[in-house]
Design a protein around this nucleic acid. Structure first.
Lengths: 242, 242
DNA sequence: CGGGACGTTGACGGTCGTCAAAATTAGTGG
DNA sequence: CCACTAATTTTGACGACCGTCAACGTCCCG
């Protein structure tokens, strides 16, 4: 029987409701015990503060328990680019492995809590638990594939398609976490959306307004209700049958 | 003493002049022997043909020995986006890990040869050779960081900056392989460059012409000579001191 | 209640896409 | 090896989309 002390219970993956999002499934109970030891600590991040920053020494990956993050890279002349938004169950920090230093900032867009998983421990346990090893590979591959999608968006889509794609992606990920399929609260500003989508904030705002005119969404500040999902899908992919 | 038969010599990483590009350094000779077994086969790819295609079952990673590839993803409505160009010593196929199927095409832009490394074998050996394990993690992390750079380019740069960045990146990678710092042959069409950079082929062509007018490069079809590297750098990063 | 951050909207201009035609090159088959 | 066709590249004219600049409105928090 595993430790049922409520204090330690709190930090166990085995009892975490996000487990199927960040951990491999089909672990034996011995493997689960091992995986529980991956998390060295929990860390709370206040809204607006950094989980890690560009240039910082890389030590750990972070599994998001609660809250919402953006990651962004900066060019030498000050421009910056949001490379992604991350929510509960997702892993951040993979950028740091290659050079032992982080190459982007991770900023909490709302108060957040993360599980700190020292990377040397991850590598150690990966050698023992095959499922964990493969899981780590999948997480990294998934990030590569996700970025391919962003490149497609940035390289070939117009403003409306970008924003529609963005909304559909957000709501789909939220739905996978038990939230509504049609309603969401944006945790980021128009400027941050624009930076991610390769648009200026005015264009994001105007495009939202156009969607509202067309009756596709309702927008009240950061609260968005999707009225016509297939309408959004058609914007993304005009040729496809509805 | 390792096998010196010329036939088997050919497929040994330990004797490959690209080893420091695709394999970890500082391996013991036993580890090197192990790593030699990673490569199940060599495969020749004719120019214009596919190493793997979107939807195909994922089995292996491929280390490029000779030749030049592009990888591209397609949206549902037929548009496609070049996600990268790969040359000798680089690894392709990482996209396939997450879903056991490839999600992009890898096309040879010139006759090529790759080392086929079955992924289950990579995972097996990674558990035994720590340096290999870490190396695989670094390769994937490097790809993630590279894509961050592409997102910055696509999200915030103008046509001249994109093309200048592209040329500097290409020539730098070629130089790391012993080629000239100032001369290169483009293996891809203007359209493929444009797809990668989020531009139309006419814009790529026009931007090349502008660089030529400004005396920054010489262009004769696919042969490019960089006359003024710091001029190119300044286009990318106008505020920096030369 | 007031100030600052955030969001919206309008007018205008620039960058790049679109369409078209011509030039150059590459590839193919006789 | 050459002729012929297809593919690629260049250049021009024009227009659309989105960026820029500006003003105003709204919300939130101290």
């Amino acid at each position: 029987m595993r430790d049922m002390n409520p204090q330690t219970l709190k930090v166990a993956c085995s009892n975490c409701n996000l487990r199927e999002l960040c951990m491999p499934v089909d672990l034996s109970s011995e493997e689960l015990d091992r995986v529980d030891e991956l998390v060295a600590a929990r860390r709370k991040i206040k809204r607006g503060t950094l989980l890690f920053r560009n240039g910082e020494k890389f030590t750990s990956l972070y599994a998001i328990r609660t809250g919402f993050f953006k990651t962004c890279v900066a060019s030498e002349d000050g421009r910056d680019q949001v490379t992604g938004f991350q929510m509960a169950g997702e892993i951040v920090g993979l950028d740091g492995i290659v050079n032992d230093h982080h190459t982007c900032d991770a900023v909490a867009l709302e108060d957040a809590e993360v599980c700190v998983m020292p990377f040397d421990r991850i590598e150690e346990f990966s050698r023992e638990v095959n499922a964990l090893q493969h899981h780590i590979h999948k997480i990294m591959s998934r990030e590569i594939v996700r970025e391919h999608g962003v490149m497609l968006l940035l390289g070939s889509m117009r403003a409306e398609e970008r924003l529609a794609t963005f909304l559909l992606n957000l709501v789909q990920r939220l739905h996978a976490r038990g939230f509504s399929q049609s309603e969401l609260i944006l945790r980021m500003t128009r400027e941050e959306i624009g930076s991610f989508l390769g648009l200026k904030l005015e264009t994001v705002s105007r495009t939202f307004s156009r969607f509202v005119e067309d009756g596709i969404v309702e927008v009240k500040q950061r609260h968005v209700r999707i009225l016509n999902t297939s309408g959004l899908r058609e914007i993304v992919n005009p040729k496809a049958p509805i």
